[in-house]
């Protein structure tokens, strides 16, 4: 794999994470627990999809084959998507969604903090812009994890359940492969080990305040970054891509 190829992969991972988690969050629109929170969650979904557009547009420029954000979003199949597995899992209840956001936002925050100083100007620019949004995402999801973890008995149980369900999907974030290593060598990408430490510290701190227990399970699922997805992915794409697939000649 050469640097150009790795760079494209890297952008697709960033873009697909945002796109898929944004897609999942957008499913909440109209179904939130109270109007105010419906609006809040959709704001975050909008941020994610906006970021996805930036990353996928950059991917198209880097590739130089004329592919647009929509070509990447609508014309790849499941095995060609590069998002983390945690982003594609179903929303579950509000607590599951909040917990997923929290675990992912923490990772995303530290990742973008490093990427804003990337040697690659395009990546640095998008990361810097996104970081302001992600900063708020993390604040929002952290506060909610604490609120619900330390709220009522019912909410505490639901949040512990959510954490237990999601935990095995967190390891993948820090699992470096050839792409990550190449990007790190070139000072384009982030050091996942460094992020892992920061992630661990912060997640522990918040979960403790939320009176939640970190699961002991140390066996982690992985594969999303390389295109080996859960069964959920196919359904996400079937829904998302239906129109451009059904009417390939149409402009929308």
């Amino acid at each position: 794999m050469n640097i150009q190829e790795a760079l494209l992969e890297y952008c697709l991972r960033l873009g697909d994470n945002s796109l898929i988690i944004g897609h999942r969050m957008s499913e909440w629109c109209g179904h939130g627990p109270i109007l105010e929170q419906d609006i809040a969650l959709i704001n975050i979904a909008l941020d994610h999809i906006g970021q996805a557009r930036n990353w996928l547009t950059l991917a198209g420029e880097l590739e130089g084959m004329g592919r647009t954000e929509d070509d990447f979003a609508y014309k790849r199949d499941a095995h060609q998507f590069r998002n983390l597995l945690i982003t594609e899992l179903p929303n579950g209840n509000w607590g599951d969604t909040i917990m997923r956001c929290f675990l992912f936002d923490t990772f995303n925050f530290y990742l973008h903090q490093i990427l804003q100083h990337s040697k690659h100007d395009g990546i640095a620019a998008i990361a810097e812009k996104s970081l302001k949004e992600i900063n708020y995402h993390l604040k929002y999801s952290s506060e909610w994890v604490i609120r619900l973890g330390d709220g009522t008995d019912v909410s505490h149980k639901k949040m512990q359940n959510a954490l237990d369900d999601l935990w095995m999907f967190t390891g993948e974030m820090f699992e470096a492969d050839e792409v990550d290593n190449l990007m790190l060598e070139e000072s384009i990408g982030a050091d996942l080990q460094q992020i892992k430490e920061a992630w661990n510290d912060y997640v522990r701190e918040v979960l403790e305040e939320a009176t939640l227990k970190i699961p002991e399970n140390n066996w982690f699922q992985k594969g999303g970054k390389q295109g080996r997805h859960t069964e959920y992915m196919g359904y996400i794409l079937a829904e998302m891509q239906f129109l451009p697939r059904a009417y390939p000649d149409a402009v929308w």
């Binding site: 105010e36 929170q37 609006i39 809040a40 704001n43 929002y140 506060e143």
Partner: peptide, 9 residues
């Protein structure tokens, strides 16, 4: 935070 999301979109 709600005010930010509701009244400052």
């Amino acid at each position: 935070e709600n005010a930010r999301d509701v009244y400052c979109r």
